[in-house]
Design a protein around this nucleic acid. Sequence first.
RNA 1: GCUGAAGUGGUGGAAUUGGUAGACACGUUGGACUUAAAAUCCAAUGGCCAUUAUGGCCGUGCGGGUUCAAGUCCCGCCUUCAGUACCA
Length: 1004
Amino acid sequence: MKYDFNQIEKKWQDYWAKNQTFKAENNSNKPKYYVLDMFPYPSGAGLHVGHPLGYIASDIYSRYKRHQGFNVLHPQGYDSFGLPAEQYAIQTGQHPAITTAENIKTYRRQLDQIGFSFDWSREVRTSDPKYYKWTQWIFIQLFNSWYNYKIDKAEDISELIKIFEVEGNANVNAACDDDVEMFSAEDWKKFDGVKQQKILLQFRLTYLAETEVNWCPALGTVLANDEIVNGVSERGGHPVVRKKMTQWSMRISAYAERLLQGLETIDWTDSLKESQRNWIGKSVGASVKFNVMPNVTLSAVEGSQIEVFTTRPDTIFGVSFMTLAPEHELVLQITTPEQKAEVEAYIEATAKRSERDRMADVKTISGAFTGAYVEHPFTKEPIPVWIGDYVLAGYGTGAVMSVPCGDQRDYDFAKHFNIPIQNIFAGVDISEEAFADKEKTIIANSDFLNGLSYKEATKKVIQELEKLGQGQGKTNYRLRDAVFSRQRYWGEPFPVYYVDGMPQMIDIKYLPIELPEVEKYLPTETGEPPLGNATKWAWCTETNTVVDNDKIDNKTVFPLELNTMPGWAGSSQYFNRYMDPHNDQEIFSKEAIDYWQQVDLYIGGSEHATGHLLYSRFWQKFMFDKGYVNHDEFAKKLINQGMILGTSAFAYGFGPGLAYEYPDDVVKAAKAGIVNKKFVIPKESYDKGIEGELDNVTQKIVDDIIAEYKSHGINVKYVGEEFSGTFTPFRISLNNLKGTSDILDVESIRKDPLFSFISEAEFILDENGDYVTHRDVEKMSKSKYNVVNPDQICEDYGADSLRLYEMFLGPLEQYKPWNTAGITGVHSFLKKLWKIYVSENGLNVTDAAPTKDSLKTLHKTIKKVQEDIENFSFNTSVSTFMIAVNELTAQKCTSKGILEPLLILISPYAPHIAEELWSKLGNSESISTAPFPKFDESHLVESSKNYPISFNGKMRFTLELPLDMSKEDIEKTVLENEKTQEQLQGRTPKKVIVVPGKIVNIVG
RNA sequence: GCUGAAGUGGUGGAAUUGGUAGACACGUUGGACUUAAAAUCCAAUGGCCAUUAUGGCCGUGCGGGUUCAAGUCCCGCCUUCAGUACCA
């Protein structure tokens, strides 16, 4: 009987679906285990072989845990709101919900065929109103909360109102906006409703504020910091500009310290934790207020102060100037009339520079003097105030005290503008560069700080500043509040309407507020977000429903929020929703969260380090503060799977449309269609061409080309003698290769519309008549023509082969190239495995007692595989299986006592073949919950060891010796051995090292 | 610049607490089977030298060091990848 993997895999996938084999119960007498994958965004392109890598790993772990007797929750769903479906809708008018549903169907089919043990009964989709009801619900919870630093947790906003009513806000220590005014209890009571709401908004955990945001004109929306990579949008690579807009924000900064501390309690990778630490960016120092010095011409300046943040308050006597960000609010007020023109010109120049320009050019020093001075808090000396774009408006206070001797940027600025630099460090030369080593600092020339270390001086100076009322110790975080509005259609609507311009929450019982239909997915003519196109889109407080924009008679109708939520909204609590996904009364029941607690193992990509994984931790901490969850970290352990890279195929061409390094006149000629002959040459010729020595074939082509150009009256210019750089590498689709080889199928590519530009080209073939492409590893992507579709792999080799091969490629966390050719190795392993159990005449398995050798093979396999799974070293267990099968084949093992447990070991990796053989052995139940075989040490006990005998550390030969032999006897036996004598050639060994059970080393 | 990870055959990668470097595969070469191909099986396969069987030398990015013994530990470099970037 043949190993008919297609039939077997279909059979068991149907069986699992029909019997709901992997459905997890919310209560069980088994211990629970929760394995989570990062749910996919269902893109139109479907899955390529890189996508399932993490899912295969988590599936192996889940199946292993079931064999270990755990009640395993292993759910899957879709992060189905997002830009691509909306962009597609804009282009085609197709509703994103339709596109999304179709894509999900494809994803589901592809996932099913790989044989995952997901509990699909718990599937969630973030774009499903039944799901986003609860995303809206959390938003309302956040709106109704504030962060109290006194107890270090979020509290209901009603608690804050109570405090305001009793004592105003003088004693409140809360996370809030910077510009909250001071008021007493009496003031508060006198404020009108709108004013009170405005103040409360400054404290809420989600709030509306005019902030400087990252605006992406091409996408027509704002972006969060983590959605911008190298100054352009993560999706599409469009430019991003700074713009002031009123937006919803999430007060994640309130949780900065807890997000930082929480990292200590979770088992996540160090690199990921480090990324989050950097993103949170804690720095400890002091804030210092400098009095602006009176100026005869500027009365407005009287009494104003400039606050700076510094991590080096100990260097305060080294301040020789102050620098403000050009955007700093005081700049125009303090600038003197003489400096006005210069300052304004500078501000204008910096405003023009995009974020990207600023990043590209950090070396150029620029700035302008404002003409103003501040007073040094201790010496009372005047300090000139400059502006410079090396100071960022968004960090600290947007102003720095510049200490050139202790900070390289200040140093460079001072040198550039000839500002004096004074040295306040003992025994340090600062004639060439600043001295920034805190640990080696001894302060000098600094009045009461002289002789102190960094730590002592910092403490002392903060005390003195407090006495003056001009400073205090302060901790700053780089983490900014997260902008939560997007000017897009395909996202969660806010459950918000406006009265007198103030946001109001729609009562929870009316959720979900569903996305309205619109005719166009673009912004309205008045520049409102796409939801502004909805005709039915206002909130009627009397009927408590969303109604037509045109007012209903006699009823009060208020405008609704037109923005939608960002992509990360739906993914920030989905892991908890899986615990109770169909509950329409609560986000999840108490019983469900009490049972499942938190995610035990989370597997996903590291690209979410500062996005999803930080926001989710924030929401989880909030949910914890509110008492909804039992853990303030949602995932105990997290593993990042590496990316599977594609192996692109390259050819080298010359001719119009192929080369981009022609001399200009040749390009012109080519574009004019005068010359249209194209060539594709082998890589060697290309390399030689680049190096400057053309071989005969290439030389002939070049001669032909020259002749052809000349016949059109065009002189071809060369770069030197050779045709350097004129042949251009370009990518070939893997579909145009012969099988899994590197050989190009010339006929197929000539017919491929993707490559019509070379359909007429002459291919220069090698002596075998082939064109061999050059292969190179890069990210797998449709645009690089190097994607490999898992459907094809499953069709040709089976899902079990795919699963084994993905694991066999290398360590889970590592980036590694895909090469389909290698899959034959694991595929023939499965065939060999099959052959042990099944021969042409039927089942091979007998009740014969296992041999000693077979028991040894089995038990060392149990040991290794168990260790490997627990260490997530899946690649090495595939090797272990291969070794086991090779050994059992050699032993001609037919014993059920060996072959039955072996199937359980393999089942997590290759579940279909395991189920099939398991049932052939007479089992009527699925293998999925069969207990994992127990390792028995006694089968591995050896009586002898093949000792490596080395001389000066170099292994020369091996010697079989009993393991119970004493050290002395081993030494004696080895020294007496004739091979030893041969090695020593009469010399007496100086020393003999014997490590029983390991090695013998003779030093001579 | 800073932070993190990593450099091992033609390729992917193995190698517990330092203890036989290259497991397991791919690929390549030779052979068997076959009219042929596919499939399958057998053998060889780090490099160099030698060969009558035995062998010898060099080898884990580079240069040092510790040790009886180093891919593994220590010091100093180089390279690659990823993240981050004027954070005061």
